[in-house]
Nucleic acid binder design. Structure first.
Lengths: 146, 146
DNA sequence: ATAAATTCCTATTATATCGGTAGGAATTAT
DNA sequence: ATAATTCCTACCGATATAATAGGAATTTAT
């Protein structure tokens, strides 16, 4: 399961992608209210997204948040990694955070590892393609289907 | 990431599948030593696998564990579910343990849900096909490749 | 019958993570 | 100056993880 942080982050990003017509920043409290996210908790989440370069902010009165990258450059894989760490199900098949399984006898010939490597590749591939744009397209498509 | 319990369980099962030529039970301590798993911890794991019907045991002197099902009927998906619960990354896309996301406004038209449903289907499909037999075949194949 | 070896069962523990709250400092528009 | 907002640090309770400890129950071998 992904953490609530990740889930909230994705929802907030999608909301910003939909709402951000001009470049007017949108306040934390507005996002929190619309997306049913605890306000203070969301505060911390948006800060992380900002420091990771996905969001920009304006401080002070009439301040708020807005997308820093284009909606088709922001994908679920990156957001998940930011909050929940590696996507892989085994430490020995992560690309960026590789760690040997201490109990493993022969990593190079491990059938279990081979399975989880396939799963990782497929999952990352799917989540990389799940951009904000793609997510919005899917929601649109579902609404049109009766 | 899967838990160590799941990882240990899979390793123990593969070991039993490989070692179980006759029907002689194999002792916890032998599995623990061979697979580098803390003995007492493995004890609890094997008990769960037994109660789930994957293993059988003989008690007392010369007792131990052995597969209850055929190696091609035991797959990683089932083992993961047993120890780590649902495989899906969102509660609203699990088949067996469905739970609504409390913050969600419109589940039926949720683009995020749609993405994670795809991921779930693909992952479960791959893990269902990852039987003990398949795992052993993969290891064999890798050893033959130089 | 007895001893030895083993699974089975119940508690306990240490550590970390998750989900969230609290309070205030810094910044900016009006 | 004031009001509104982001930014930052610290804290907290609950739960899960990865074990460990100790002994009861069971069975085989002698």
């Amino acid at each position: 399961m992904i953490s609530k942080k990740t889930k909230y982050a994705i929802n907030a990003l999608v909301y910003l992608a939909k709402e951000n017509k001009g470049t007017e920043p949108i306040q934390i409290s507005k996002i929190a209210e619309s997306e049913n996210i605890p306000r203070k908790f969301l505060e911390a989440i948006l800060l992380v997204l900002k420091n990771a370069g996905l969001l920009s902010s304006r401080k002070g009165k009439a301040g708020g948040y807005f997308l820093h990258k284009s909606p088709d450059e922001i994908n679920i894989a990156d957001v998940m990694r930011l909050f929940d760490g590696p996507i892989a199900l085994l430490p020995c098949v992560t690309h960026n955070y590789y760690e040997r399984c201490e109990e493993c006898k022969d990593e190079a010939n491990c059938g279990i590892r081979s399975v989880f490597a396939d799963v990782r590749n497929e999952t990352v591939n799917m989540l990389k393609h799940a951009t904000l744009t793609e997510i919005m397209h899917r929601a649109e498509a579902m609404k049109k289907e009766i």
